[in-house]
Nucleic acid binder design. Structure first.
Length: 352
DNA sequence: AACACGGGGGG
DNA sequence: CCCCCAGTGTT
């Protein structure tokens, strides 16, 4: 048994059902669905990469009016292109759009290539966009796999692997290719159907299977995510916690064998635990920077910079502060780096 | 406020 | 391969 079959069980007639669905319930009147030249298709795909259909609808015709051909676009200045793009965000797209137009003019005799692999070599065109242009403009047999399509395929086949992993996304790519219709005449309806079904029915939140207002889902009977009540878990994208880098100062105030500690607020990091004060302004005794060290938490990488001050008298600067003998700190609630640090203080003291 | 999106670029 | 980024719109 091949790997493909093990991962993606048979969903009967998916391809044909989707084609039928598209013909009946898909979108047929979007401006870029008429007169599907490579230039028009390409422009719409780039605009749609990170921008909603409703926004692109307001911009597409205007853009084409100003840059009616790939030649005119390539001949424009990048500033003119950026000006026309303004408000749509991700301005790298506009710069690549311009570069791509120039490359089509100089490297491809002014004609967009039809081979997805060649399209993919152009600026701003990745695997999915290349396939879309090849299908819509040239009727080629190529698979798209954008965010909408990933959601549709992952849900129906119950593919619950982490899609931030290249391996799993590649498995989905293979699956997308296996699903392509064999009749070339079906490719446009099929590809458009994938896009439309994902955008209007198999939406991220409240898809049609649980929201009748969106219509009915033709795949309800076989959709693994729906049948196993995992619509909200699939597709799975494990977001890596962003590790924030933080510098923290510890004022290590020492008087004889005692240190001044501060009970931290009940909210935030190390809530309610005892720590060195992170700031102080009143004490003017000479201070000495100690070696900084790192402490790593799930979501933070802290660089702790202790500053030692030997005080002649015990002062308490705030209500939440208290002096402790080093012999007693062991009984306090201390965050990990505090207990490690205090132990090292002990060693220093013993060594003295 | 958190999340979603395709592609590029650097390590 | 992995990570990070960019900007607007949606939930």
């Amino acid at each position: 048994m091949s790997e493909k079959v093990m991962i993606f069980s048979e969903v009967k007639n998916f391809t044909q059902d989707l084609i039928d669905w598209q013909k009946k319930l898909g979108r047929h009147d979007l401006p870029w669905q008429k007169n599907r030249t490579a230039y028009r298709v390409w422009l719409s795909e780039i605009m749609l990469q990170q921008t909603q259909v409703s926004t692109v609808l307001n911009r597409y015709d205007e853009f084409l009016k100003i840059f009616p051909t790939v030649e005119r676009l390539g001949a424009a200045t990048v500033d003119e292109v950026l000006a026309q793009w303004s408000g749509m965000g991700y301005y790298t797209r506009a710069r690549n759009l311009h570069r791509c137009a120039q490359s089509v003019m100089t490297d491809h005799d002014g004609v967009f290539p039809s081979d997805p692999k060649v399209l993919e070599s152009l600026p701003g065109i990745g695997r999915s966009t290349a396939a879309a242009v090849a299908v819509f403009a040239y009727g080629k047999r190529a698979a798209i796999l954008d965010g909408n399509v990933k959601r549709v395929l992952a849900r129906i086949w119950g593919f619950d692997q982490d899609l931030t992993k290249t391996l799993h996304t590649n498995q989905l790519w293979s699956h997308a290719e296996n699903l392509l219709p064999h009749k070339k005449s079906d490719l446009i309806a099929y590809t458009q159907g994938l896009m439309d079904f994902g955008a209007t029915h198999c939406t991220q939140y409240q898809p049609a299977c649980i929201d009748p207002q969106k219509g009915s889902c033709p795949f309800k009977k076989s959709c693994v995510a729906y049948l196993s009540e995992r619509i909200n878990q699939i597709p799975l994208k494990v977001k890596k916690v962003k590790v924030e880098k933080i510098d923290m100062t510890w004022w290590v105030m020492i008087h004889q064998d005692q240190v001044l500690l501060e009970k931290r607020p009940e909210k935030g990091i190390w809530a309610g635990l005892w720590c060195f004060p992170e700031s102080q302004e009143l004490v003017k005794e000479p201070s000495q920077a100690m070696p900084a060290f790192k402490h790593v938490l799930t979501h933070r990488q802290m660089t702790i910079k202790p500053i030692k001050v030997h005080l002649k008298k015990r002062v308490r600067l705030q209500e939440n502060q208290q002096w402790f003998s080093l012999n007693d700190v062991g009984g306090l609630g201390l965050p990990k780096p505090m207990s490690l640090f205090l132990k090292s203080l002990d060693l220093v003291r013993d060594g003295e």
